[in-house]
Amino acid sequence: MTSRVTLVSAAVSEALREARFDDGSPVDASGLRAVRAAADAGAVPRGDRVWLSPTVRCRQTAQGLGLDGATEVPELAGLQVGRWRGSTLGEVSAAEPEAVARWLADPLSAPHGGDSVREFCDRVAGCLDSAAELGGRLVAVVEPEVVRALVVRALGAPESAFWRLDVPPLTATEFSGRAGRWNVRAGRPLEGRA
């Protein structure tokens, strides 16, 4: 059975603009304008089900896009960074340069007390497998790192590739196939017809 999964990366927030580890900040004014423009342009993908990363900005993005009846899925939570939450990458790099270097180089490292990249990729990969079992079309509004992790797992790429994938706000990444074999179409902006 073929499944189709469209991941929509959440709209921009102040934390994202500042390269700040997620601190629960909402979508900012420009992000809300972009969400409304995408909705007005009819660029919102539709599905049989809608899932969300459990964050304020994912909820706001889904609501603004008119994706009603969305279900928050705890396994789609963003990368947990423990004590680094709320700090900028620059601040953490200045205070703990060796820890940051280790975290970026070793997928098993979690010096902040949160998820390692491997743990994170494993956690979110289960959601792609669940979507395949359900079949049909799924739309999920998620944090950018969730998109990265699922692309890594779907393509069987090494976890080191996680840091090499850029996921801009309000873009769609589409998966089609089934568990164990996915095709990926990445980075379509939500600005034209879906």
Rank of each mutant, 00 (worst) to 15 (best):
M1C: 04
M1P: 10
A19E: 13
A19M: 06
D23W: 06
S25V: 01
S25P: 00
D28N: 14
D28P: 01
A34M: 07
V35K: 02
A37P: 02
V44M: 12
P45W: 14
P45G: 11
D48E: 14
S53I: 10
T55D: 08
R57E: 07
C58K: 08
Q63V: 13
L65G: 02
L65E: 03
T71C: 08
E72H: 02
P74Y: 04
G78S: 15
L79K: 08
R83M: 09
G86M: 10
E91V: 04
V92S: 05
A94Q: 10
E96N: 03
P97N: 04
P97I: 05
E98F: 03
W103P: 09
D106N: 09
L108W: 11
L108A: 15
L108Y: 12
A110D: 14
G114T: 09
G114M: 11
E119P: 04
F120R: 12
G126L: 09
C127L: 05
L128N: 02
D129H: 05
S130Y: 00
A131Q: 01
R137Q: 04
A140L: 06
V141T: 08
V141L: 10
V142L: 05
E143R: 12
E145P: 08
V146Y: 09
V147P: 02
V151E: 05
V152I: 11
A154N: 03
G156H: 02
A157V: 04
A157I: 01
F162S: 05
V167C: 07
P169W: 02
A172S: 12
F175S: 03
R178P: 01
A179I: 00
W182F: 05
V184M: 10
V184Y: 06
V184D: 07
R185C: 02
R188G: 09
E191H: 13
